[in-house]
Computed example of a mutant assay.
Amino acid sequence: MNPALRIPAEFVAPSTEDMHLPPLFEVGSFAFGKQTLLILLSVVLIAGFFMFVIRRRAMVPSKGQFLGEMGYGFVRNHLGRDIIGEKDFRPFVPLLFTFFFFLLVNNLFGSIPVLQLPTFSHPGSAYILAAIAYVVWVAVGIRRHGLGQFMVKMTMPPNVPKILYVILIPLEFLSNLIIRPVTHALRVFATMFAGHMAIMVAAALTAFLATEVGGVLGVGGSVFGIVLGLFIYFLEVLIQVLQAYIFTLLFAVYVQGALQEGH
């Protein structure tokens, strides 16, 4: 057959099975896979880095100590003090710090060659983290105001005609206590999943155009695919950082709302 008349194979886009590999091993119903391995690795990396850079606590910090202190100061001051407030922020700094750097490292795994998996592209990881945030801010609100007053804050907005509470109470309850933690998790999961899938599709399409189509169309298309893939890659890095910030920021906002005086 004339090579010019060769019909290329059909392009098959990557699927979720290509992103989420089979487990490395299983013990009963427990499966240990790449995602779990990366989560454990992130804990080691974060703890190891900060323990290493603060080991001397020099008055004139080294570059590593300066970087660690800058990261801690960013979370403490901008996500803790500025959002929760000077009076109440200190007890929440460790959790804010953990949320931000745990999310940041696990998200960035998706942009590191060989690793290439944002662990929060699995919904379970995102929901567990959001559940921790949910339990903390609800517990904080109940401890500060009592269960009854906290429920009033969550379901009865001020300066509203009382007749409207018949409609607003169930809507506010659903919005603040049910939908809020779900969307808190979905923001991370959806963006990590969609971004990584987009990179995989761009890479697969580039390879398909270069190897199966060939000719001017194949070469031109593969060059375009490389450019598009690089654009998506750097956009994804930006989103990975932003999602770590947004998740932690929202938690701080929720805590601040739970702590503020009732209306």
Rank of each mutant, 00 (worst) to 15 (best):
165 Y>V: 03
259 L>D: 00
7 I>Y: 10
81 R>G: 12
142 I>K: 04
214 G>W: 01
65 Q>A: 07
245 Y>S: 05
75 V>R: 03
123 P>W: 01
156 M>Y: 11
35 Q>E: 13
15 S>K: 08
68 G>F: 03
214 G>Y: 00
219 V>W: 09
13 A>I: 01
162 K>S: 15
64 G>C: 05
135 V>A: 07
77 N>M: 08
29 S>Q: 11
85 G>E: 10
75 V>T: 04
58 A>P: 13
4 A>R: 09
120 F>S: 00
50 F>A: 07
147 L>I: 12
158 P>E: 07
72 Y>Q: 14
171 L>V: 11
67 L>N: 08
253 V>T: 09
130 A>K: 02
22 P>D: 02
26 E>I: 07
237 V>A: 09
60 V>C: 15
189 F>I: 05
179 I>W: 11
234 F>D: 08
261 E>P: 09
250 L>D: 13
115 L>K: 00
48 G>K: 06
248 T>V: 02
145 H>T: 05
134 Y>L: 09
60 V>A: 10
21 L>E: 12
92 F>E: 06
91 P>F: 01
223 V>P: 08
147 L>G: 13
103 L>S: 01
241 V>W: 05
176 N>L: 05
245 Y>F: 09
192 M>D: 12
128 I>L: 08
199 I>D: 10
34 K>R: 12
51 M>G: 12
9 A>V: 11
212 E>A: 06
253 V>I: 10
228 L>K: 11
37 L>A: 12
216 V>E: 14
212 E>I: 04
121 S>N: 00
48 G>V: 05
113 P>L: 01
169 I>S: 05
37 L>H: 04
23 P>T: 00
36 T>V: 06
215 G>N: 02
246 I>S: 13
154 M>Y: 07
180 R>M: 07
203 A>P: 11
49 F>N: 06
3 P>C: 06
235 L>E: 13
109 F>T: 03
146 G>V: 02
57 R>P: 04
252 A>G: 05
7 I>R: 14
13 A>H: 02
63 K>I: 13
3 P>K: 08
132 I>C: 05
70 M>N: 10
216 V>R: 08
9 A>K: 10
263 H>F: 15
77 N>P: 12
252 A>D: 05
249 L>K: 15
153 K>R: 07
225 G>L: 04
185 A>F: 03
246 I>E: 14
47 A>E: 10
167 I>Q: 11
212 E>D: 07
143 R>C: 12
210 A>P: 09
102 F>H: 10
192 M>N: 15
195 G>D: 04
14 P>G: 00
190 A>I: 09
154 M>G: 07
29 S>W: 10
114 V>Q: 09
105 V>Q: 00
28 G>Q: 00
187 R>V: 15
159 N>Y: 14
64 G>K: 03
182 V>P: 12
242 L>A: 11
98 T>E: 09
74 F>R: 02
175 S>W: 14
